[in-house]
């Protein structure tokens, strides 16, 4: 299989763009004209983005600076500056949600990356039935999330669930435990479901990256006497690093923002034990009807996620430049 060398990129670039020296005036004008045309062409998409992302963002920020409790219209919607931020940052439920979000996202991220990589390495080996194994691995990913969540909810059920049935049968516990109903076990239970659901995505990305690792590298490393761990450490991991960073970023965003899995299994309960920031936003908005505080939590959440994406984005750019 032949792969285009990185140096062949320029060969297909349009005339004019590859010039190493400053282009003559006429060409410069043409570039400017091209650029202008480009702006015109992306304008509709840009306007659309502004309308569906920019406007809500600005509106949310503005709402977070106003008092707005839907069931207290008598209070009006006065500008209150940073009062919502002060209330939210001081509230126990906020620190609880931040803590839960970190546990939820962090555990999911580490577990999905490690498991995803392990499975990808395994299924990158040559063995009979490999194609079938790869297909089966994708089942959690292609299962609609609501179906998956409700199935897991049943498996966790204290009365009829399969986990409790097995544990009781093997004498590990005396009677069924409501895994989703106890404050000590609910978070672990929903994280396990989420790892099951999310790992195949990481696996697919990493498997694709593994298949793009040039075989010659392994061959020459073998000749040099590198063992399999060294080959993993010094060849495989560095080559798939950019993909791992993308997988990590996407997994973090998916997990961080995941609402439906948590909502369908526990609604953030019991006693806020699984209440993450996204669940908190919903509850402030549609159970407490406090739109000011809800958008405040939303804005803080957005900033947290933005900081994370910036840090990871830079890592990604750096790793791209290195390779």
């Amino acid at each position: 299989m032949s792969r285009p060398s990185p140096h062949s990129k320029g060969a297909v670039a349009p005339e004019g763009a590859t010039a190493l020296h400053a282009p003559p005036a006429r060409a410069r004008r043409r570039i400017r004209a091209d650029a202008w045309m480009g702006y015109v062409l992306i304008a509709p998409a840009l306007l659309m983005l502004l309308a569906v992302i920019g406007y809500p963002l600005v509106k949310a920020f503005s709402m977070s600076l106003h008092k707005n409790i839907l069931i207290r219209p008598d209070l009006g919607q006065p500008f209150v500056g940073l009062e919502n931020y002060r209330n939210v940052l001081q509230a126990d439920y906020f620190s609880n949600a931040v803590f839960n979000t970190l546990i939820w996202t962090g555990t999911n991220l580490v577990a999905q990356l490690v498991l995803g990589l392990a499975i990808a390495l395994l299924l990158n080996l040559d063995f009979p039935g490999r194609a079938l194994a790869r297909g089966v691995m994708l089942v959690p990913w292609i299962t609609p999330s609501v179906v998956a969540v409700l199935t897991w909810k049943w498996m966790y059920d204290a009365q009829f669930g399969i986990f409790n049935d097995l544990l009781v049968r093997f004498g590990v516990i005396e009677r069924g435990v409501a895994w989703l109903g106890n404050t000590g076990t609910a978070m672990t239970a929903i994280i396990i479901e989420s790892i099951w659901k999310g790992t195949p995505f990481v696996f697919v990305m990493l498997l694709a990256a593994l298949q793009a690792v040039p075989g010659e590298l392994y061959d020459s490393a073998k000749v040099d006497g590198a063992n399999s761990f060294q080959r993993l450490r010094f060849i495989t991991l560095p080559v798939i690093r950019p993909t791992m960073l993308i997988a990590a970023t996407l997994t973090t965003i998916f997990t961080f923002n995941n609402f439906n899995a948590i909502w369908l299994m526990t609604e953030g309960g019991p006693l806020r034990a699984t209440e993450t920031l996204t669940i908190l936003v919903y509850k402030r908005a549609f159970q407490a009807f406090d739109m000011g505080e809800a958008t405040t939590v939303g804005v803080i959440t957005f900033v947290m996620l933005l900081l994370f994406v910036i840090v990871f984005g830079r890592q990604y750019v750096r790793s791209q430049m290195e390779s």
Partner: peptide
């Protein structure tokens, strides 16, 4: 009382 009410009731909604 765990003898009166099943554990599963903790998740019933």
């Amino acid at each position: 009382n765990p003898d009166y009410v099943p554990e599963a009731a903790k998740t019933w909604k």
